[in-house]
Amino acid sequence: MKGTGVVSWALVLLLWLVSISVAWGQEVTPSQCQDEIRQGIGACMAVAMGQPPSAACCARIRATHTECVCPLVTPEVAAMIDVNWVKKLAEGCGRNIPPHFKCGSITIP
């Protein structure tokens, strides 16, 4: 069960990193955030199993608000993620992550 939690946090971080340019500064309710995170984990779970992101996963990544995910990026979550790998996945979904972008404990190279 512990592995599933790690995968979920990693996917949450993935969603955040590739959604940087989506709706920066728009108000989102806590229930909307919970829903976006739940949908993202469901759509992108195969990525954690080594598969490339599906069209549904990429669409969810593009729709997720940064305000929903940034507060979850703790040092513990950051330690589980290869930021360069996440950046490569983001580019595969058509998202560029600005260099030196910082959120929580992560800074994009």
Rank of each mutant, 00 (worst) to 15 (best):
G5F: 02
A56Q: 14
G5H: 04
F101R: 09
T74C: 09
P52V: 01
R60I: 00
C70Q: 15
I41A: 09
Q39P: 00
I106H: 09
P109Y: 13
G3V: 03
P75M: 05
R95V: 07
I97K: 07
E76D: 14
E76W: 01
K102R: 14
A63H: 13
I37K: 09
C93I: 00
F101D: 10
V47Y: 06
I106D: 14
V28W: 11
S8R: 11
H100M: 03
C57D: 07
T4N: 03
P53M: 10
W24V: 09
V18L: 10
C68I: 06
V73T: 11
M45H: 11
W9Q: 15
C33Q: 08
V28S: 12
W16C: 06
I106G: 07
T29G: 12
W85F: 06
C44I: 02
K87D: 10
G5Y: 05
I97L: 10
F101A: 12
H100Y: 04
A55F: 08
W24D: 10
L13Y: 04
S105E: 07
R95G: 05
D82T: 01
T29Q: 12
T66W: 05
A43C: 04
G92R: 09
M1P: 05
G50A: 12
V6Y: 01
Q51R: 12
Q26L: 02
I108M: 14
N84P: 00
I37H: 04
D82G: 02
C103D: 08
E36A: 11
R60V: 01
A10E: 09
I108S: 14
V28P: 03
E91S: 08
G3I: 03
V83Q: 05
S31P: 00
C103I: 04
Q39L: 06
S21I: 00
G40C: 04
S21D: 14
K88C: 03
P109T: 07
P75A: 10
T64W: 06
M80C: 02
I37N: 08
P53Q: 08
C33T: 07
K88P: 00
A46D: 14
W9H: 15
T64I: 15
F101Q: 12
A10Q: 10
M80H: 01
I41N: 13
N96M: 04
V7C: 14
P99G: 08
V77E: 06
P53S: 11
I108D: 07
P52K: 11
S31E: 15
C103W: 06
G42A: 11
W16I: 00
L15V: 00
I97G: 10
K87R: 14
V7T: 15
C103N: 06
P98D: 08
I97S: 13
W9R: 11
C68V: 07
Q34N: 12
S19T: 04
G5V: 06
G94C: 06
G94W: 05
S21A: 12
K102W: 03
L11W: 05
C70E: 14
Q32N: 07
P75R: 09
K88A: 15
G92M: 07
S105K: 01
V73Y: 07
T107S: 13
D82A: 02
Q39D: 11
S31I: 02
V47Q: 05
S8W: 01
V18E: 13
G3S: 10
K88W: 02
W16F: 04
A63M: 11
D35W: 02
V73N: 13
V18N: 14
S8T: 09
P30T: 07
K88S: 15
L15G: 15
G42V: 00
V69H: 08
N96P: 00
S105C: 02
H65K: 14
T4E: 12
